[in-house]
Write a protein that binds this DNA or RNA. Structure first.
Lengths: 231, 231
DNA sequence: TCTCGTTCCGATACAGTGTATTGAGCGATA
DNA sequence: TATCGCTCAATACACTGTATCGGAACGAGA
């Protein structure tokens, strides 16, 4: 009888389910890791492990880690809905601004990746296109100038919001906590009397809704644009 | 004779001139490295090597690498001259904006380090203080709002300027070069006809002086502030 | 059915990073 | 002179991105 069971036959290497991979799977895995644990959690080894694959496997779909980061950015741009064609330039730019801010809140790492290189992915280009298209000034230079200024403000504002949010989270949580953590140092600084305005800000200013602050700053920019280029 | 020359005495480990170190020396060395070769060139090993020291030596003066980066940022803030007390709020904020832009041009890595954490070093605090002090609105919330918006714009604008500058440098140099490098891809994209506005921008827009563009955007913001808070 | 060629996957390797640990040397004090 | 304490550097560890390469898997041809 040749078909006897051989109990101690070495298991075939167990094929750990060689999941078929794809750029999208890789990018989404990376995004999930980044959402949960921050950008530090995105290493090729960890991304690969999340997909039951060895690190080198990724290089079949991706040239370099930077490319993966670019793809992540482009994916997020794809999540941002373009302004409706019916919107006038002001509403359109507000829509775009909120889209970016919301995306950055969903993916806190997003704003960190906007800096390095310009984004040339399809979604990024579509985003820029729709942003430009929502401003129907006749002079293209005016369009560029307006969009550029709004985008600059948005990036900066989102950046500072995320930074503040991280600082809060890292020192514990509430204002109370912060007072206790980095408080002593600041108290000493303020006590020197060399920073009266900072003192006023910390004691007298009302802490307002961040969304409102964001919109107020955005209104400054939009008002300025409207004033310069007749309505 | 006991004081004979012993030729083959093993050299004392040569004490490679154990230069006395200091935070300032370390920070300045790091800044020089970053200025020359970018932030990647700032590793504890390389900074230490630049000072004829072993890597671990630095930990006598610095708690962690992040602290070194914070110190670098604060040092650059120290280079920025505060606005003269005589300046009105508009001139004052313009002064600050230009100060940051100029510093970021001198130290291209500066803008990359502004994001991570809030800056609490003495120079950073002094910078914020003088910025706030130049805006003499009666309502502290209005001061905060105005300064916040201007700073957001400045950060965003500088960021995009630096990014663009790096892109140019990495692909070779001129518009010509760029056309040849990343051009084919863009050409294909534009040829799809899905990005008419991008096409117009690339072909019709006049490339203006970056400084002028920066100031124009800044004027938008300042105009908007002036309009909302009576002049 | 057996062998060959190709194609893909993963193990291994390398140079680099930040930092913890450890030990050696030296100057000051008892 | 003996010992303590401090300073500095060597070593080590875990981790990164990526090049190289051996071997397994698989389809084609004999």
């Amino acid at each position: 009888m040749s078909n006897e069971v051989v109990w101690d036959r070495p298991e075939p290497p167990i094929k750990p389910s060689p999941t078929p991979l794809s750029r999208d799977l890789i990018v989404n895995a990376a995004i999930r890791l980044a959402d949960e644990g921050g950008l530090d959690e995105v290493s090729l080894r960890k991304v690969a492990a999340a997909l039951n694959a060895g690190p080198m496997r990724l290089y079949g779909y991706i040239e370099t880690k930077d490319e993966l980061l670019d793809l992540m950015v482009d994916e997020v741009y794809g999540e941002i809905t373009p302004p409706p064609p019916s919107a006038d330039w002001r509403a359109g730019l507000q829509h775009v601004a909120h889209g970016i801010r919301d995306a950055a809140k969903r993916h806190e790492w997003f704003i960190d990746l906007l800096s390095p290189r310009p984004h040339q992915g399809p979604n990024s280009l579509a985003h820029i296109e729709s942003t430009l298209a929502t401003v129907r000034f006749e002079d293209i230079d005016q369009v560029l100038s307006a969009v550029g200024a709004v985008m600059a403000y948005v990036y900066g504002a989102v950046r500072s919001e995320i930074t503040e949010l991280r600082a809060e989270r890292s020192t514990g949580m509430t204002e109370e906590q912060w007072q206790r953590a980095s408080g002593p140092y600041m108290e000493r600084m303020l006590a020197t009397g060399k920073f009266p305005m900072l003192g006023r800000v910390m004691h007298e200013s009302s802490d307002r809704d961040p969304a409102q602050v964001f919109d107020e700053g955005l209104d400054y920019v939009l008002d300025g644009i409207a004033a310069r280029h007749g309505i």
